[in-house]
Design a protein around this nucleic acid. Structure first.
Lengths: 194, 194
DNA sequence: TATAAATGAATGACAATTCATTCATTTATA
DNA sequence: TATAAATGAATGAATTGTCATTCATTTATA
């Protein structure tokens, strides 16, 4: 087994364990067991428990950014892009449930390095929205009397709250598609210039 | 000093300490110090560390519900009610910054009892929104082709994400009023029937 | 004085981290 | 080619530090 394989194997185990028990309740031995590896092996690949979490943010969010950008680049109309973002984001939450749980829970923690993540890496993800908004405003598709920064947060927050519902209550009351459609609808009819 | 005074004193200290360090990084001795009380005294008023957190949810969210309901009851138009909710919610986040941080962080944690709180007590708070939406739909003020449950979550999520910005980055880029106004504006022009 | 409330040092459980040891694989030597 | 030496990844038991919780003692109150 190659070194990189074991690195990813441990990360995948960590996503699962952190997702189920939360960072603080997760034991290194849980992750080791899940990864089918000795406790000590983890320290050959990561500096400490917290480093696993940060690496997880770094690498996994990076993958999400690549994926969602690819999906959006299929569209040229900013209204459609917003819908595609919503659809894709919610789909990711369902497909990568455990990762979504980790991000939901742990990105809210206090602690300076986490805050920096919110301000850096994670911001990159959310800023995909503000780029769409900004371009849409330049093209006069979206109202210019609203601040892109506020729209961005409102839109992402709306999606994030739907995700939370699914994570906490797995019997989905609303389907992926209707959620993405209705949220986009609410926002578009709010931000599209008459 | 009356018993109830010390109960609240410890709770206030816990809000501060949990808000700053998060539940898991907070030590009982931190709370005791902040409350100007001996470590052991805390166990005369609470069963354990976790009980402090649950009591905090129960009692403090209860107060918020009372406050915000009072503010909303001043209005009769559901559009205005929604704006008042936004304004009041964001004002609370600024005035009770530490409590807001605790709720942001800890309501996202996994663990069954926390989840039940999200599904019960906290839901009462958010459901103030769905009541407004529902009444507004009955009065034909709001579109009926959108599901109240989705609007509720989208609206709350939008506010919650703005709160997060303020909590993480205290140099407010947007004012309280403009945030409440723009978010209400986005939503109203999305959900008000033409 | 008797009872209740408060104290804070001591306890013990729990996990993160360390590190001496093992062992499969690779490289050097004859 | 066969044998020996070196490597370093992997192991998991032992170490260590960290608190939550307890409880014998002290202090306040009625």
């Amino acid at each position: 087994m190659k070194k990189s394989d074991k690195h990813q194997k441990i990360l995948n185990a960590a996503i699962k364990v952190f997702g189920q028990k939360g960072f603080f309740n997760a034991r290194i031995s849980d992750i080791a067991k899940e990864a089918d590896v000795a406790d000590g092996t983890i320290y050959l690949y990561f500096n400490n428990k917290y480093d696993i979490l940060l690496t997880l943010f770094e690498e996994e969010i990076g993958k999400l950014i690549v994926e969602i950008k690819a999906a959006i680049s299929q569209k040229t109309d900013q209204r459609e892009m917003l819908y595609v973002f919503a659809l894709h984001h919610l789909r990711l939450v369902i497909e990568k449930k455990e990762l979504a749980e980790v991000l939901q829970m742990e990105l809210r923690q206090s602690g300076e390095s986490i805050k920096e993540y919110r301000l850096n890496k994670f911001a990159d993800y959310v800023n995909i929205i503000s780029e769409i908004i900004h371009t849409g405003q330049e093209n006069n598709i979206f109202r210019r009397d609203l601040q892109a920064g506020i729209i961005k947060r409102a839109f992402f927050g709306a999606l994030d709250e739907m995700s939370r519902l699914w994570i906490l209550n797995p019997n989905h009351t609303y389907t992926l598609e209707e959620s993405a459609e209705e949220i986009s609808d609410i926002f578009l009819n709010g931000i599209v210039a008459d």
